[in-house]
Deep mutational scan, measured.
Amino acid sequence: NITNLCPFDEVFNATRFASVYAWNRKRISNCVADYSVLYNFAPFFAFKCYGVSPTKLNDLCFTNVYADSFVIRGNEVSQIAPGQTGNIADYNYKLPDDFTGCVIAWNSNKLDSKVGGNYNYLYRLFRKSNLKPFERDISTEIYQAGNKPCNGVAGFNCYFPLRSYGFRPTYGVGHQPYRVVVLSFELLHAPATVCGPKKST
Rank of each mutant, 00 (worst) to 15 (best):
I2R: 14
T3K: 10
N4S: 11
N4E: 12
L5E: 12
C6M: 04
D9M: 15
E10R: 07
V11K: 02
V11M: 05
V11F: 05
V11Y: 04
F12Y: 03
N13F: 00
A14L: 04
A14S: 08
A14V: 05
A14E: 07
T15N: 06
F17G: 04
S19A: 07
S19E: 04
V20K: 02
V20N: 04
Y21T: 05
A22W: 04
A22T: 07
A22G: 07
N24Y: 04
K26S: 07
R27E: 10
I28H: 01
I28F: 15
S29P: 07
S29K: 09
N30S: 07
N30T: 03
C31V: 05
C31D: 07
V32R: 10
V32E: 08
A33Q: 07
A33K: 06
S36G: 09
S36Y: 04
V37E: 10
V37T: 14
L38M: 09
Y39N: 15
N40L: 07
N40V: 05
N40F: 05
F41T: 09
A42Q: 12
P43A: 07
P43Y: 08
F45W: 15
F45L: 11
F45V: 14
F45P: 10
F47N: 01
K48C: 06
Y50V: 02
Y50S: 01
G51N: 14
G51T: 01
G51L: 01
G51V: 01
V52E: 02
V52R: 01
S53A: 11
P54Y: 12
P54C: 05
N58V: 08
N58I: 06
L60S: 09
C61Q: 14
C61S: 11
F62S: 07
N64F: 08
N64Y: 11
N64S: 12
V65N: 01
Y66P: 02
Y66H: 07
A67V: 10
A67H: 01
D68H: 02
D68S: 02
D68W: 03
S69D: 02
S69T: 09
S69A: 05
V71E: 02
I72D: 02
R73Y: 06
G74W: 02
N75T: 10
N75L: 07
V77W: 02
V77I: 12
V77P: 02
S78W: 06
Q79R: 03
P82N: 01
P82E: 01
P82G: 02
P82M: 00
Q84W: 03
Q84D: 03
Q84M: 13
Q84F: 03
T85H: 14
T85W: 04
N87Y: 15
Y91C: 06
Y91K: 06
K94V: 01
L95Y: 00
D97C: 06
D98M: 06
D98G: 07
D98Y: 06
F99A: 00
F99K: 00
F99L: 01
F99V: 00
T100P: 00
T100H: 09
G101Q: 00
C102L: 02
V103F: 00
V103W: 00
V103N: 00
V103P: 00
I104W: 11
N107A: 07
N107V: 04
N107E: 07
K110I: 08
K110R: 11
L111M: 13
L111S: 10
L111G: 07
D112K: 00
S113H: 04
K114A: 14
K114M: 12
K114G: 11
K114T: 11
V115F: 10
V115D: 15
G116R: 10
N118E: 12
N118H: 08
N120D: 14
Y121E: 05
Y121M: 09
Y121I: 09
R124I: 04
L125M: 15
F126L: 10
R127K: 07
K128W: 07
S129P: 09
N130P: 15
N130Q: 13
N130T: 13
L131T: 03
K132D: 09
P133I: 02
F134C: 07
R136E: 04
D137V: 00
S139D: 10
S139I: 04
S139R: 09
T140E: 12
T140Y: 08
E141V: 09
I142V: 13
I142R: 07
Y143T: 09
Q144S: 11
Q144R: 10
A145W: 10
A145L: 10
A145Y: 12
G146H: 08
K148V: 13
K148R: 13
N151P: 10
N151M: 11
G152H: 10
V153Y: 10
V153R: 15
A154I: 11
G155H: 08
G155M: 08
G155Q: 09
C158R: 06
C158K: 06
F160M: 14
P161C: 05
L162C: 04
L162Y: 03
R163S: 12
S164V: 07
Y165C: 02
G166N: 14
G166A: 13
F167V: 03
T170K: 11
T170D: 15
G172R: 12
V173P: 14
V173Y: 11
G174Y: 09
G174H: 13
G174C: 07
Q176M: 06
P177C: 02
P177F: 04
Y178L: 09
Y178G: 01
R179Y: 04
R179A: 03
R179H: 04
R179P: 02
V180G: 00
V182E: 00
V182N: 00
V182Y: 00
V182K: 00
L183C: 03
L183D: 00
S184G: 11
E186G: 10
L188V: 14
L188Q: 15
L188W: 13
H189Y: 10
A190Q: 14
A190V: 10
P191R: 13
A192L: 12
V194T: 11
C195L: 10
P197S: 15
P197V: 15
S200V: 14
T201G: 14
T201K: 11
